[in-house]
Design a binder for these strands. Structure first.
Length: 477
RNA sequence: CGAGGCGUAGCGCAGUUUGGUAGCGCGCUUGGUUCGGGACCAAGAGGUCGUGGGUUCAAAUCCCGUCGCCUCGACCA
C-alpha cells in the first residue's frame, strides 16, 4: 500500500495556494492521474465512482421528467460544423480534427465532437416529420473533446465526460420553458445531491453558447471566492433547426421548423464539489455521491472477535443500502484514519475491544471532525442514517452561508474591483453594452456570470448610464 | 502565440556559480518490534542527469541547437 507522508505537509498551505491544494488532492487521493496526452486525465476507480453516483441521480431525474437516453457518434463530418455560422466560429479554435483513417487521407475531415448539437440536429432532421413526433427529448452520456490551452483536472481538461440533453419542440414557448425547467432541475440536483448552493440565471450575449438565442447557467462559489460554471442550458430558437432542416408538418398542414434546446453538466461537477466542500485534510464528499459513505476501522484487529464484530456491522449497514467499507488492511489505525479522511468518507466507525465489550461504537464525522464514542452498536443503522442526513444538510448550509456572506453590491467600478479582490461575487448594475462588459474584464479580471431575473440596480457600474440588467460579476475558473 | 521559470531515481529536490567516483528526503522491497491518530530499527533495490551536437584528458556542470512541462496574459463545460 502506497503511503504518502508528503501529502499532509503539502496540503497545509491551503489558505495561500488553493489551486495547488486542489491539484494535490485530486491526484493524491487517487481520483485521477494525468494522461499521456497533454490536458487529458485518467479517472481512477475512486473518482469514477463519484461520477457513477452523479449519473445515477441525474439519470433518475431525467427519466422522471420524461427524457430518454440515446447515443450519437463521436466523429462529426466537418461540413456539419460549418452549417451554423455562430456555432462554427465559437468552436473552431478548440476542435480536434481527424484527417487520416485506414491508412489514407480522408476526403472530408472529421471533427472529434466538442458537443453534439450538429450531429443530433442532423438526425433530428431525419426523425422529425410530423407534429406527432414532437416533442423529441433525448439525452446522451458521452465524452467530448475541446482542445483547451490551459487545463486542470476535472475543472478543464481536453477530454471530459458529460451528459448532453437535446430536445425539439413545435413552439418556441415550449422549448424556452424546457430550458428553464432543466435549469431548475440542475439547481435542485446541485442542492440535494451535491449539497452545493448555486446562482442561476441568464448569461450575457458575450458568455452565451455559440449558436444559442439564450444561455442560462448555474454558478457555484469555490473556497477562494472564484466562480465555476457548473451547468448550462441553452435555448436555440430555430437556429439549429434551420441549419439542419428539422422541419415538421403542423396540425394545420403547414411545413415549419422546430425549436431546439440543449443542456449539459460534466465531470467538472466533481471539481466543483471538491472545491466547495474540501478542507486542508483533503476531500469532504457529500453522502449522496460518496463512493464510500461509511468506513469501518477495526482497532486492535488481531484481538479475538474484533474483525468478526466489524464484519457483522458491515453486513448490517450494507443490508440497509449504505455504501460501506471495512478496512481490514495491515496498515495501522492512524494511517487508515488519515487515508479515509483524505478521501472524504463522510463517516468513520472505529470498533475495538473496548467498544465491543460495552456494546458501543466510536463515530467520526469527516465534515466537522467531531468524534464521539457513546453510540450504541445495536442502533448502528439509524445512527448512520441520521448522521449521513445531517452531514448533507450541514454541508449545504455551510456552503450557502459562505456564498451569501460573499455576495456584495457595487455601485462603482472601484467597489467592484474591491469586491472581487476580496473573493466575492459582486452584484452590480449594467447598461447591457459589450464595451462595459469588456472593461470589467480588463480592470477587475472578472466576468459576468449570470444576470438576475429582475433589474434592481439604478446605473451601470462602469459607465453610469441607466442599468438594464443586474449582474453577478466574479472571477471564474 | 507574448513574458518568466523548470527538466537529475516512482514523487519532491540538492549538486551547475568554480568541470574530476551520482546525492538527500519520502515512497518501494525484505526481516523484526509495533498498531485507540500517518510509529520505529536494520538490511536492500532503483538514475546512460529531457534530447542532439560541440569544447575538453574529463561534462549533470561550459557553449550552440532542439523538445517537453509549469506559471502569468488571450480562449473555454
Amino acid at each position: 500500500m502506497a503511503k504518502d507522508n508528503q501529502f499532509v505537509s503539502q496540503i497545509a498551505d491551503i489558505e495561500t495556494d488553493f489551486p495547488q491544494w486542489y491539484t494535490d488532492v485530486v491526484v493524491k487521493t487517487k481520483l485521477v492521474d494525468y494522461g499521456p496526452v497533454k490536458g487529458t486525465m485518467v479517472i481512477r476507480p475512486y473518482g469514477y465512482a463519484i461520477w457513477e453516483n452523479i449519473q445515477k441521480e441525474l439519470d433518475a431525474r431525467f427519466k422522471a421528467a420524461g427524457v430518454e437516453n440515446a447515443y450519437f457518434p463521436l466523429l462529426i463530418p466537418m461540413s456539419f460544423m460549418t452549417k451554423e455560422a455562430e456555432h462554427v466560429e465559437g468552436f473552431a479554435p478548440e476542435v480536434a480534427v481527424v484527417t487520416h483513417a485506414g491508412g489514407a487521407k480522408l476526403e472530408e475531415p472529421l471533427v472529434v465532437r466538442p458537443t453534439s448539437e450538429t450531429i443530433i440536429g442532423h438526425m433530428m432532421g431525419k426523425w422529425v416529420e410530423s407534429w406527432r413526433d414532437l416533442p423529441l427529448r433525448m439525452n446522451q452520456w458521452c465524452n467530448v473533446m475541446r482542445w483547451e490551452k490551459t487545463t486542470r483536472p476535472f475543472l478543464r481538461t481536453s477530454e471530459f465526460l458529460w451528459q448532453e440533453g437535446h430536445s425539439v419542440y413545435a413552439t418556441g414557448e415550449e422549448a424556452e420553458r424546457e430550458t428553464l425547467n432543466m435549469l431548475r432541475l440542475y439547481e435542485e440536483f446541485a442542492k440535494n445531491v451535491l449539497c452545493m448552493p448555486v446562482l442561476t440565471g441568464r448569461k450575457t450575449e458575450k458568455e452565451k453558447f455559440a449558436g444559442a438565442v439564450a444561455t442560462y447557467g448555474m454558478e457555484a462559489m469555490m473556497h477562494d471566492g472564484k466562480s465555476l460554471q457548473s451547468g448550462t442550458t441553452h435555448y436555440m430558437g430555430q437556429n439549429f433547426a434551420k441549419a439542419f432542416g428539422v422541419q415538421f408538418t403542423g396540425k394545420d398542414g403547414a411545413l415549419q421548423y422546430g425549436y431546439t434546446m440543449s443542456y449539459g453538466v460534466s465531470t467538472r461537477l466533481i471539481g466543483a464539489l471538491i472545491m466547495t466542500h474540501g478542507d486542508a485534510r483533503g476531500l469532504i464528499l457529500p453522502p449522496p455521491v460518496a463512493p464510500v459513505q461509511v468506513v469501518i476501522v477495526p482497532i486492535a484487529a488481531k484481538k479475538e472477535g474484533v474483525l468478526e464484530a466489524c464484519g457483522a456491522l458491515k453486513e448490517r449497514l450494507a443490508a440497509k443500502g449504505f455504501r460501506v467499507k471495512l478496512d481490514d488492511s495491515e496498515n495501522s489505525p492512524g494511517w487508515k484514519f488519515n487515508e479515509w479522511e483524505m478521501k472524504g468518507v463522510p463517516i468513520r466507525i472505529e470498533l475495538g475491544p473496548r467498544d465491543i465489550e460495552s456494546g458501543k461504537m466510536t463515530l467520526f464525522r469527516r465534515d466537522t471532525l467531531e468524534k464521539g464514542d457513546g453510540y450504541l452498536l445495536s442502533e448502528a443503522e439509524t445512527v448512520v442514517e441520521e448522521m449521513l442526513r445531517r452531514i448533507g444538510e450541514d454541508l449545504y448550509a455551510k456552503a450557502e452561508k459562505r456564498m451569501h456572506e460573499r455576495i456584495v453590491n457595487a455601485g462603482t467600478a472601484e467597489e467592484l474591483l474591491q469586491g472581487v479582490d476580496g473573493g466575492n461575487f459582486v452584484r452590480a448594475g449594467w447598461c447591457g453594452c459589450r464595451e462595459c462588459e469588456d472593461k470589467v474584464k480588463e480592470f477587475a479580471q472578472a466576468t459576468a456570470r449570470v444576470m438576475e431575473k429582475e433589474n434592481t440596480a439604478e446605473k451601470c457600474v462602469v459607465c453610469g448610464k441607466p442599468s438594464v440588467h443586474t449582474v453577478f460579476f466574479a472571477r471564474a475558473y
